[in-house]
């Protein structure tokens, strides 16, 4: 089986992560109600004819994808894989409102066409004229990780030599407000703001030029808090590792009652491990773990942890293996293991 090497990691987020190369030196916790993305100048990357119909999510996805391929020196990938929890929610809102407000009359097609979940993947393919494998995963907080799993499978089995994989979600205008309301109704709802962003990664079976390896991904729907540590142990054992081999853990804490899953590990097996918590700077959204994955990649590349992300004060000289763990409301769990190459 081939190894899945990571050649590029590009992210558009609520922080200055696209143009700025300082790895979150100037980043700060988001204090606004929503963690809106800092958008690049899209016109520099997308032709006018294509851009005019694109909602923010599509623009973020297409530009992050383009930049990721550039950095990975991949012209046309042999697979394009996108994860998105909510899909193109802004155009869904537009078409829904038009449909209801006009009582099914005088409806224009554009927002319907653009509302389809696979729009980002399709627009990337269209822009590149890439006729290869093209897939979109839409399973909540494991949308991106399902894509990672597929990417790794394609490379391991030699079905593809190069893969572009990423995740994207946009805030939209109404659904995010409604989901916020739901959180406020909870006794201990999500504490970090809802956000948006996109991250894309160039992967290949070639080692030259790579800075990290996607070792393994596990996606599972449910597990009890009591069983989470043994579940992780089995995952690590499968990869020939022990808890103490993990040099940093990146966890998707968002302040809600389900953070107990993370606390369970932080207070036991990872007590002496550098602990990273990132959603206070990225915001929470179904593909927020893309930000964590991006940070994990750059951590391995630069061998440092940005101060803003470090939860405990433990640091290490060398970072060889990095583990990501994310879940949403006690469901949609994922372990992702990255290694330096």
């Amino acid at each position: 089986m081939k190894t899945c090497f990571i050649h590029s990691a590009i992210c558009i987020s609520a922080q200055e992560t696209f143009y700025n190369n300082d790895f979150l030196k100037e980043a700060s916790e988001v204090t606004t109600e929503f963690a809106s993305a800092i958008h690049p100048v899209y016109k520099d990357y997308i032709p006018p004819a294509a851009i005019r119909r694109m909602a923010p999510g599509v623009k973020m996805g297409v530009v992050a994808a383009k930049q990721s391929l550039n950095e990975a020196n991949i012209n046309i990938p042999e697979a394009i894989i996108v994860g998105t929890g909510m899909g193109c929610i802004e155009d869904s809102e537009k078409f829904l409102n038009a449909l209801i407000d006009n009582d099914e009359e005088f409806l224009a097609p554009t927002s319907f066409i653009q509302s389809t979940h696979n729009t980002v993947g399709a627009q990337i393919a269209l822009g590149l004229q890439c006729k290869a494998y093209n897939m979109t995963y839409v399973h909540g907080a494991v949308s991106f990780e399902s894509g990672l799993l597929d990417a790794q499978l394609l490379i391991q089995t030699s079905e593809a030599k190069t893969v572009l994989v990423g995740g994207v979600d946009e805030l939209g205008k109404e659904f995010s407000v409604f989901f916020n309301k739901i959180e406020k109704q909870q006794p201990q709802g999500i504490q970090v703001p809802f956000g948006e962003g996109a991250g894309f990664f160039g992967m290949s079976s070639e080692k030259a030029g790579a800075f990290a390896i996607l070792k393994d991904v596990q996606v599972f729907e449910t597990v009890s808090v009591a069983d989470i540590t043994s579940k992780l142990k089995a995952f690590l054992t499968n990869n020939g590792l022990l808890f103490q081999d993990i040099d940093a853990i990146l966890m998707g804490e968002n302040g809600d009652a389900y953070d107990v899953y993370y606390h369970e590990m932080q207070a036991s097996v990872f007590l002496k491990t550098p602990q990273i918590s990132y959603k206070k700077v990225s915001g929470e959204f179904y593909t927020a773990s893309v930000f964590g994955f991006w940070a994990g990649c750059h951590l391995l590349k630069r061998q440092e942890i940005p101060k803003i992300l470090l939860k405990n004060s433990i640091e290490k000289k060398n970072y060889q293996h990095v583990l990501l763990y994310n879940q949403y409301k006690g469901k949609e769990h994922s372990f992702t293991l990255l290694s330096r190459c």
Partner: peptide, 17 residues
């Protein structure tokens, strides 16, 4: 102007509305 088939559908709606 470089319009395409999707624009044509938009124009049809405009004529109607």
């Amino acid at each position: 102007l470089g319009l395409d088939s999707i624009d044509a559908l938009e124009l049809i709606v405009m004529l109607d509305k």
